[in-house]
Simulated scan of single mutants.
Amino acid sequence: MTTRRDLLKFSALAAAAATLPSFALADEKAKPVGRAKKPLDILILGGTGFTGPFQVNYALARGHKVTLFNRGKRPSPEWPGEVEQLFGDRNTGDLKSLAGRKWDVCIDNPTSLPFWVRDAGKVLAGNVGHYLFISTISVYADGSTPGIDEDDALAVYKGRDAMAETQDSLRADIENLYGPLKALSEAEARKQFGERVTIVRPGYIVGPRDETDRFTYWPHRVAQGGEMLVPGDGADPVQVIDGRDLGEWMIRLAEAGTLGTFNAVGPEKPLTMDGMLRACERATGGKPKYTHVTPEFLEEQKVAELPIWVSRKAGPFAGYGAVSNARAIQAGLTYRPLETTVTDLMAWFRSQPAERQATLRAGITREQEAALLKAWHARKA
């Protein structure tokens, strides 16, 4: 039920995330963040979207110096320390504020276009010791088989000129361009910055600040109780990673100078659809009655969107719920309990304006769900 079109659609929504004053929430009882052995001068391209603020907060807590580069279109949170802000626009090639500066590390968060990496390289190559690029599991050519790992073949660009692609052309053909252009962006990173490159490939990023409502749909619906439609038999694999786990790990990768390519998917151990829902129950207190329906029924009913869930029968996307994260775990990626992610997500969501909470941006409405359940029960009668 998930396609590359969905992934980019929701990535665009995530880029519009509202500010979040605190990154701790229910995590406040966690161990205090220790200082890094060696403070770094870190440049973050972006930094005010979904995961960027988690990177900034964690980097400051670790004693690093942080500089942000972006267009200044979104308000910045109130940082718990000094953060330098540089302005420019990568769409137009305006990177003048970066010229003549040096940083130990550059973290590139928002890039989906190869020319953004090329232009950054023209200004930063030789002035940055380590370049970390956030990519996506959508770069893989074949997403149909569970166990996708970092050495699998990547999607091939079939357009005329990858460097001429823009955000408009990407949006116009998202399903065919998103993965291949991300793959070419990775290649351009290595071309511009040489061996000192780290590629991180997340799947679904969730938790507080997530404006897409992809994951939020499930705990929100569980909390409401009553009869609840669940796709599949409950055994389909699910992979999500808390944005804080991703953001903080990026800083630790920078501190360690870790190079290579990593699938940043979670949780640590396999999770099923029913397992995810039970975690939502424990976190929200909701006690719905689950009614599992088949993928074939949903297809017949023309249900286009039940987020996060990927059916084992989903053809080219069947492997997206079971991507290998062994290499990332070996490189120090750690995970909060899913219940913590759900608790913090719902606390953040319920702090949003009433009109924002009124209509979720993903999933189906209660009216649609009721109609589907009625049709399902009629078929089984």
Rank of each mutant, 00 (worst) to 15 (best):
M163D: 10
Y140W: 14
G121M: 08
A153E: 15
M163E: 09
T145A: 12
V156I: 14
G147N: 11
A125M: 07
Q167D: 15
Y157R: 07
F133E: 03
S144G: 10
L124R: 03
S144P: 10
K158R: 14
E165V: 10
G121L: 06
D161L: 03
A162N: 05
L132M: 07
M163Q: 11
L154W: 09
Y157I: 00
D168S: 08
L124V: 02
H130P: 02
V128A: 01
A153C: 13
A155T: 09
V139D: 00
T166E: 07
E165A: 02
A164R: 05
E150A: 10
A164W: 05
K122G: 06
K122P: 01
K122H: 06
V123L: 04
T145V: 15
E150P: 02
D168M: 12
G147R: 10
S135G: 01
V128C: 03
R160D: 15
E150F: 05
S135L: 02
D168G: 04
G129F: 00
G143C: 12
A153V: 09
Y157S: 12
G143K: 04
V156Y: 09
L154M: 04
S144K: 14
I134N: 03
Y140N: 14
K158I: 01
A153K: 15
A155V: 07
L124M: 11
T166G: 09
L132H: 06
Q167G: 13
G129Y: 00
G126C: 06
F133Q: 11
G126F: 08
G159T: 08
P146L: 08
S138H: 13
F133A: 04
V128S: 00
V128P: 01
T145H: 14
T166I: 01
G143Y: 03
A141R: 13
D152M: 14
F133Y: 08
P146G: 05
H130Y: 08
H130A: 05
D168V: 10
K122T: 04
K158H: 10
V139Y: 05
K158W: 14
